[in-house]
């Protein structure tokens, strides 16, 4: 046992840190149910009106749609690229594997602002202006390293002998991949995709550089709204985002656990 006093100090400090992390977020959720027409204290009553207004705000709904489509496409492309690369790195002896890995995670070693500027200027030079395509390219390259790190970590734990057994029983490499390897990899693939989606959905640093005028994602929409003043609508939108970005990964983790449990021990 730790000396009780020292341990109590550490525990007290940790509790303060937890409060520091959660209080501001809790206040956002609390204020989003505030009946008052100003987005601030005091609370005057409990109301869903800001969520109703959110639902009736075309600009926000459009931003939501853009973010969803962008996130989904980013997740599909990034996960496909990432899973293939991870398979190569985990399953084969690649000469210079360390250098290859460093190259693949380079997009997160470069400050995102610099990545954003370089991509914008280069693609503009090639004739691709600020557009949804540019946004998609940007989000793919920025999320790819995260997918590779997550998928690689999960792939390592899949044993190879099941595949070898399938092959020795006469399955073709294709059959083996789709009937054995892919199902076993599914939790890793889902985790990678979900990670890519969440990061894309949340991104603002690069997005502000790449987005064409008039197109907003949810974070850039919130940023634009903050320019005026903080309204309860932003808090309501924040609450929706909090439940989405916290709820989705938790749901994903639960599904992944269920699938891997069903897959046998």
């Amino acid at each position: 046992m730790m000396a009780p006093l020292g341990w109590q100090l550490i525990r007290g400090w940790a509790i303060l840190v937890y409060l520091f992390m959660f209080l501001p977020v809790a206040v956002v959720v609390l204020l989003s149910f505030n009946a008052s027409q100003f987005g601030s204290f005091p609370m005057t009553g409990f109301s869903f009106r800001w969520f109703v207004e959110l639902w009736n705000n075309d600009a926000i709904l459009r931003a939501f749609q853009t973010s969803m489509i962008l996130g989904a496409l980013t997740a599909v492309i990034s996960t496909t690229l990432g899973v293939l690369a991870s398979l190569a790195l985990v399953r084969y002896r690649v000469p210079g594997a360390n250098a290859v890995t460093t190259m693949l995670i380079a997009p997160i070693l470069v400050p995102e602002v610099v990545l954003a500027v370089a991509l914008l200027l280069f693609l503009n030079f090639l004739g691709i202006n600020k557009s949804f395509t540019l946004l998609l390219f940007g989000h793919v390259i920025f999320t790819l390293p995260f997918v590779i790190l997550v998928v690689q970590a999960r792939l390592v734990s899949i044993r190879r002998d099941v595949e070898e057994a399938a092959m020795s029983l006469g399955a073709s490499p294709m059959q083996t991949f789709f009937q054995i390897t892919l199902p076993l990899m599914m939790p890793a693939v889902l985790a990678g995709g979900l990670f890519a989606f969440t990061i894309s959905f949340d991104d603002i640093t690069g997005t502000l550089f790449w987005k064409p005028g008039g197109v907003e994602t949810v974070p850039t929409q919130i940023f634009a709204m903050l320019r005026n003043s903080i309204s309860p609508e932003i808090n309501a939108l924040g609450t929706v985002m909090i439940f989405l970005t916290v709820g989705l990964p938790l749901l994903g983790a639960a599904i992944a656990r269920k699938i891997s449990n069903k897959g046998g021990t």
Binding site: M21, V25, V28, V218, P219, I222, M241, I242, T245
Partner: peptide, 8 residues
């Protein structure tokens, strides 16, 4: 909080 939107 790591999962909660940076801008929020």
């Amino acid at each position: 909080p790591f999962w909660i939107s940076y801008i929020i």
